[in-house]
Nucleic acid binder design. Structure first.
Lengths: 224, 224
DNA sequence: TAATATAATCTGATATACCAAACATCATAT
DNA sequence: ATATGATGTTTGGTATATCAGATTATATTA
């Protein structure tokens, strides 16, 4: 049998479990804005110590989901009203910027890899149906490659954070099915703009691409 | 005398001191990419316990400046090459998006406050010289009001984080002097776009405004 | 000698204990 | 009756101890 490679990040620490759990609860509205999150209480409820709770709360504070007042307590932010739409706008902005930088900074090797990725995806899209799962995965890889090409850890990290929100929101909407992307010509067009090192065009096309796929998600959410 | 109001955040915890200190060190290159940041060592060097160190490292990890591999350690990110220019592009994107949302969501009262702020700034800009300090402050307030008008804590928080980077980078460049803004007509134009609820225009004007002021900063940096 | 098993050690992950600020309560003095 | 001050409780901030995975050094064996 093939040995499964354990990627870093698969090992979930208590901190990460707490983080995800609290983020979901806040976004879902289970934890109300203004609510007092007591470290000891949370630790007691979850049956763990306060240390992982602390770390998770600090990260949530940095994300803006909670506010910690020294010596007083940590409270759910009163402005947690970010709609799915706004989140997707934010994602589009960041991914667009990422594409711009990729167009400016990608090496020839990376460019070649991206070309091969496009070809792979086009091949899979012809095969249809049976390979849908892999296609979704390869689509994600395409975006990951562009983020990597931007060579900017801060922007990449911000995108990852937005993705985490996005997922939490989709959980709330009971909308697990990841959008199977249509219009693969868009991917090719993004690639071509990057390949021509046309930063402006690359950003614009990526932004539009994300927003268009976003519209599908929003449509599905409203049809519930 | 006027009583100084103590704002939350003025009380700096050890965690915040460590956070700022490490961020500066990483951005300045004092801590090299790939370098192993040992919690015990750092705690020893700073003469404190590991708890505040942990919390700071988790936040830096969330920012993308360090990477923590479970059970192995925390290392300075190998991709900390974010130029000032890229950071300012990021800021421009986020502030632009913020202006877009503000145009869509600001209440009439907030709009009125913004109008008064513009008038105040125009008055100060006529007074010149003697009131320069206050003008810089009021300029910042103008941007804060727009961020608040966007009513999106996540985007606002992201902008604040970028600002923290921006400041750390300027420290490195020994470029403390905050840009005294020229072209106040730009502020008025942004206000007008928001007032007309023209989201597209508001975003575009804000983005251009930030990028234009950015060019001044970049010019100063290169002239050193 | 080289490959492998084993023990010592390093390090982050987690748990627990204590400290000090903030707040609420109640007593006391004016 | 109100303002002031003492006191106890709550809570985050910090320190320290323990646990367990990962690494390295060392010993053992083919």
């Amino acid at each position: 049998m093939a040995i499964k490679r354990i990627e870093p990040g698969e090992i979930k620490s208590l901190r990460d479990i707490v983080l995800e759990s609290l983020r979901d609860a806040i976004i879902s509205g289970e934890l109300k804005p203004g609510e007092h999150l007591k470290e000891r209480d949370l630790a007691g409820q979850m049956g763990i110590s306060t240390t992982p709770i602390k770390e998770a709360l600090r990260i949530l504070g940095h994300e803006g989901l909670v506010e910690t007042v020294p010596r007083r307590g940590t409270f759910v932010s009163t402005m947690v009203d970010s709609s799915v739409e706004e989140l997707l706008m934010l994602k589009a902005s960041l991914e667009g910027l990422s594409a711009r930088l990729a167009a400016m900074k990608m090496s020839e090797e990376e460019m070649e890899d991206l070309r091969r990725q496009i070809q792979l995806m086009e091949k899979l899209s012809c095969a249809k149906e049976e390979k849908r799962e892999q296609l979704t995965e390869e689509n994600e890889n395409f975006h990951v490659m562009i983020r990597a090409g931007a060579k900017n850890s801060i922007i990449t990290q911000m995108i990852m954070n937005v993705v985490a929100y996005d997922q939490a929101i989709r959980k709330r909407a009971l909308q697990f099915n990841v959008e199977v992307e249509e219009g693969f010509s868009e991917h090719r067009q993004i690639y071509e703009a990057i390949q021509e090192r046309n930063a402006e065009l690359a950003e614009q096309r990526m932004k539009n691409h994300i927003m268009r796929t976003a519209e599908n998600v929003l449509k599905n959410l409203k049809n519930r």
